[in-house]
Design a binder for these strands. Sequence first.
DNA 1: AGAATATGTGAGTGATCGCTCACGTTTGCT
DNA 2: AGCAAACGTGAGCGATCACTCACATATTCT
Lengths: 191, 191
Amino acid sequence: MGSILRATARILTRDGYEGASTNRIAEVAGVSVGSLYQYFPSKDAIVAALIDAHCEEMFEVFRRELAAVAGADLEAAARAVVAAQIEAHKVNPKLHRVFLEQLPKVGMLKRFHEIGRRSEALVRTYLEARREEMRPANLDLAAFLLVTTVEAVTHAAVIDQPERLDDPDFIPEVTALCVRYLAKGSGPPRG
Amino acid sequence: MGSILRATARILTRDGYEGASTNRIAEVAGVSVGSLYQYFPSKDAIVAALIDAHCEEMFEVFRRELAAVAGADLEAAARAVVAAQIEAHKVNPKLHRVFLEQLPKVGMLKRFHEIGRRSEALVRTYLEARREEMRPANLDLAAFLLVTTVEAVTHAAVIDQPERLDDPDFIPEVTALCVRYLAKGSGPPRG
DNA sequence: AGAATATGTGAGTGATCGCTCACGTTTGCT
DNA sequence: AGCAAACGTGAGCGATCACTCACATATTCT
């Protein structure tokens, strides 16, 4: 069963979604198609199980790195969130890409949206604990903006432009994007 | 030919990628499959043409709204960028979603990345013209972060959580995210 | 050992798909 | 009208796919 998931992941990362027929998955896993259907009711179920495992793994990396800075100040916490997202995206970037860019079924994406919502909840908890330091009145909106932003920027960097990560300004600048948005410090002069 | 593209767009928005077989496209367009292949060499070519048209339309909306504020101050320009991205995403949200979430071919996504790069160039031009007002030293990185951020936040809102757009804080807060990142105003106290 | 059960096999099924091609139909010219 | 080129047609081809099922093999009982 694990071998089926491992074979599927390998095919997806090497040949993309098109190469992942049930016969080929069975072949690479070293079992027969019949066996494959004893463990999974459908091809979609295999992919779904793989997505679930991948999402769980990414979220676990994210959550663990965040737990370490629950009491830290804003700057340190923001830097940790950014670094955590980068690490989470390094779990299996190729597989991550296939899931987000090649899966033709919409239902599959819901699983990714869910870890987004869970990440938002973690961040909102932090923001609420330090509410008096925060400029935004609507912390729900703030958490949404931050998580969406950091995820997008991280994703674009890790998946599409890995050379960005070599830029020593990358993490500090993304951190600044978050911190300057959140902190009360004087913004631009208000009209 | 236009009818083929229109039929394809309609099927994609109504039934998703799975429903868009060449026979069905021909049927909805009111032509025969044979005719379809006189205008397009392959099914992929139809989808590609549709993507190109869609991207061009979105970028044109974005570019036009931006041209109007080329000389405006940072706050106004940022607000315009945010509003422009929202408007661009309203061109055809359902089709946009299918393109980004259901197309199984990676090659198709390159076309979306290209308008991202073009948007970055527009933004960078503005940033460079006002370089002395900007805090970030690396305006290339700044343009990348801003465009990626505003696109992601806008996309998430328009496509997945349209109720966000009803929040009167939405545009101001996204604008604040950009302006506070860019402006020289005192950031958080530096260690 | 032998029956009963669980597990594994892979050729084959039916359905779908992108695409072709032999054949009509229309159009525009002389 | 007569012809030819351009345009349109749709049954059907070959390929592929997810999935099944009759059968073989392995395992666990008594």
